[in-house]
Design a protein around this nucleic acid. Structure first.
Lengths: 240, 240
DNA sequence: CAGTGGTCTAGACCACTGC
DNA sequence: CAGTGGTCTAGACCACTGA
């Protein structure tokens, strides 16, 4: 049945087969997947082996198990994103309402670096959003967001609901689910445009967070570049 | 035998018992610990259960298993430390020799914030090192390092071997092993002292990395504050 | 209550290391 | 080769969820 050529352990191969099903959208985020017993029958493995495969998927953040209830496809929340580490997020009152205003929105032929980052054809059409994020009435982040127009066309005509986060909109409007992000932090100094939008002096340090968002199938969906005052940044990690 | 009150699963309790042995220095870093069969006899558990406990310890970076050879106490290397992410580290030639020169070294009554960070008595005596880290002849990091004098007295009289890293010295000279670190990144602007030591203009962005280092027993051993040009920083993470 | 995931065992067999 | 960790099974039992 299983390839004799693939010498990886059974529970690893089963992990990958299930991950593939998730990538193929066999089950949507939040949905229940088959029980361990059913999976055991499907993949012809003992319960312990299936359990071990699910352990790996849980570690990878792809599924969530609820004791007595079932195993579900997880919808990631990116709690440890660098952007979240900024001071204004950690404020006392957790009811601070983040808002965001779209400043510019257009479709255009993709610049070379954008099509490269998103793995698109060189002549592909892309969407560009320029957005200002606001906390407590104060502008704290300028974002430039790039999307493949072929996948995200509805974004061009949606109304600007300032309360809404983008990723849930991607899912409801375009059927695209973000499963993983990569963030890179660098430091720059504010140019005149930054200074004006963010209300700080030109030449002050700016935190630049470049983000690539990927779907369950590993394909890049969104490229985003966020700029905010570096004085608001406080990023903490623990290492062994 | 085992407490009926402790309702955590057996493999979790065994994980903690072994972690405790490591913290107590029953086995030193690099040493082999008993075989799974021996551990099974000690803790009265089946092989699979011991294996699962060791899985957890491996995930936590406390041990390393070598197939066919044994299980060893791991010596961490902190590859993902924020400081490592600086540009000058990632350079093409990997033979760049980092050097460091100790600028100041003294014992003094611990300032309040230092004794607090290191969990010492308020009137404890501490060691303060000021160090300049140099890559390719260029100064790139100013570090201020604080240690409990009671544990690290030999540091006061050691000779300044500019090639050596500190953590191996802590181990060989003082018998203290760093098992885990916590780093916090913030951004500041260069004051005159920074500017002079690092050879940049005052007011330029500075990356400030505060680091607390802990022993296997979870006690803080070292408090360190590093300052370097933020333009050299490029920190990348992946999140689900 | 039935159905689900979580723990644990005993034992078989395999794969790798180092003598 | 003996000793070690790694995989896998079948089945028992437990703990939790939700109808």
């Amino acid at each position: 049945m299983s390839d004799r050529i693939d010498r990886r352990p059974l529970y690893r191969r089963i992990r990958d087969l299930i991950a593939e099903e998730i990538a193929k959208n066999t089950w949507r985020p939040g949905e229940r997947i088959p029980t361990e017993a059913e999976l055991g029958a499907t993949y012809e493995a003992a319960g312990g082996t299936i359990g071990r495969a699910l352990d790996l998927l849980e570690d990878d953040g792809l599924i969530e198990r609820v004791h007595g209830s079932g195993t579900f496809v997880r919808r990631p929340n990116f709690q440890t994103a660098i952007i979240r580490s900024a001071q204004y997020y950690g404020c006392a009152s957790d009811v601070r309402t983040p808002r965001s205003r779209i400043l510019e929105r257009e479709a255009l032929p993709g610049p070379r670096d954008v099509t490269t980052a998103l793995c698109l054809d060189e002549d592909a059409q892309v969407i560009r959003l320029k957005r200002l994020r606001i906390y407590d009435g104060l502008p704290v982040l300028v974002e430039c967001i790039w999307l493949d127009e072929a996948r995200f066309a509805p974004i061009l005509t949606m109304e600007d609901d300032q309360q809404q986060l983008l990723y849930p909109i991607y899912e409801s409007l375009c059927g695209e689910v973000v499963a993983r992000i990569e963030e890179t932090l660098t430091i720059d100094v504010a140019d005149n445009a930054d200074a004006e939008l963010l209300g700080i002096g030109p030449g002050r340090p700016i935190a630049v967070i470049e983000r690539l968002a990927f779907g369950y199938d590993g394909h890049p969906l969104e490229w985003r570049c966020s700029r905010g005052p570096a004085s608001d940044l406080r990023y903490k990690i623990s290492i062994r």
